[in-house]
Write a protein that binds this DNA or RNA. Structure first.
Lengths: 209, 209
DNA sequence: CTATTTTTGTCAATCTTATAACAAAGGCTT
DNA sequence: AAGCCTTTGTTATAAGATTGACAAAAATAG
């Protein structure tokens, strides 16, 4: 497996490969060519071969790719071969929705605790996880070696929460607030900017008319 | 305003311009150069100028861009100069979270109704919007000329819902399920694939170590 | 009113990403 | 077992996106 600088475009396609391979496994298909995969996933066969070849030759000429092996390899590349301790900050509807997603846990993202400012939510248990006072966040993250924090607060407290997280050694932040968080060098971030996605949707709606 | 084929990369940056311009307006700044904007938004000044120039020369040499005018122009490009009738399918935590977002309504996305299969949720009012039986979805969409549907169902019913929506003239689908929906030609789709975003986050986490 | 500074719009160059082409490897058929 | 067919890995080519450079326009300063 060569490791020299995979392009962003490739990385962002990997989860989709992973998902489609999982589907193939469900259908008990254990072999697939780039051409067949192209048909169902919508990327060109050439692109698929080139993408996968970034990580070493998983395929075999005249045969194609072994679905299960490829699925596992891509999982490994994405870091799904280990567990992550996660917390949710903001126990509103969105935070609760994320807490209830069984899928995340299935792939190794283990929710340890939730935090909120609202005293009425504290002590509540959602999907067997307790909502704690956000004042305890920093200590909790540090003492429990939390890997990933899902930030579902409102816009105004997001950066302040991010600062607390970074100060206490968070490794990754999943940001659901409409703010571009500034993090320390040790931490990475991915954003779900809902409103931006909705705006592009209405752009395409107009274009399509 | 030239209209000949704007690239996808540009489109996806527009909402971010819109957001930062809004911030500038809040701070009563009514003029900005590409260089200054570059510093706060993080795109290169050259890219900013080229992006904006796709839609016609909004700037003025020696002066820069008028913040409010530019904000309004980008809003217009994104289709924010009109209202959209929306529905939510799936009134679980996520559906409820979306129903409670005041931001969407502020930008013209007006929630008309919610739908669910669960009889216990029917009749419930969330943020003043009623949860209806999903069996009524098709008729409702057609009769009320719904523009956009937010699909927050589980994976297994998503495509079936999409078919109903298309058959009844939906124009856009905002898809929160981990499925790639197949739509009729008249409809556009944007996906929020949470798990894919989370996977890339753990990839970056590993890379960053 | 003139000179200087700022800053855009735009063209050219570079860098990145995607597609096409094809030799080499290996499976499959008869 | 021989020959044909499939399919990869990889290189070459094309397309797309970003950055750099600079003339022309307009503001600002003196």
């Amino acid at each position: 497996m060569k490791d020299n600088k995979i392009s962003m475009a490739v990385i962002r396609r990997l989860p989709k490969y992973h998902r489609y391979l999982s589907q193939l496994m469900d259908r008990d298909i254990n072999r697939i060519s780039s051409k067949e995969l192209s048909k169902i996933i919508g990327f060109s066969a050439s692109q698929i071969r080139q993408d996968l070849n970034n990580f070493g030759g998983f395929g075999q000429q005249g045969y194609g790719y072994n679905v299960e092996a490829l699925y596992r390899e891509i999982g490994k590349i994405l870091g799904l071969d280990r567990e992550y301790k996660t917390v949710i900050i903001g126990a509103g509807n969105l935070g609760q929705a994320l807490a209830n997603y069984t899928n995340f846990s299935r792939f190794g993202y283990k929710l340890q605790a939730m935090f909120d400012v609202n005293p009425r939510l504290m002590g509540l248990r959602i999907n067997d996880v307790e909502v704690k006072d956000v004042d305890l966040l920093g200590d909790y993250v540090r003492e429990n070696n939390i890997d990933i924090a899902y930030v579902c607060t409102n816009r105004s407290s997001a950066q302040q929460i991010a600062d607390i997280l970074c100060k206490n050694g968070i490794k990754a932040v999943w940001n659901f607030t409409p703010v571009d968080l500034v993090l320390k060098k040790g931490a990475v971030v991915e954003n779900i900017h809902l409103i931006e996605n909705l705006f592009t949707l209405s752009y395409f709606l107009k274009e399509n008319e």
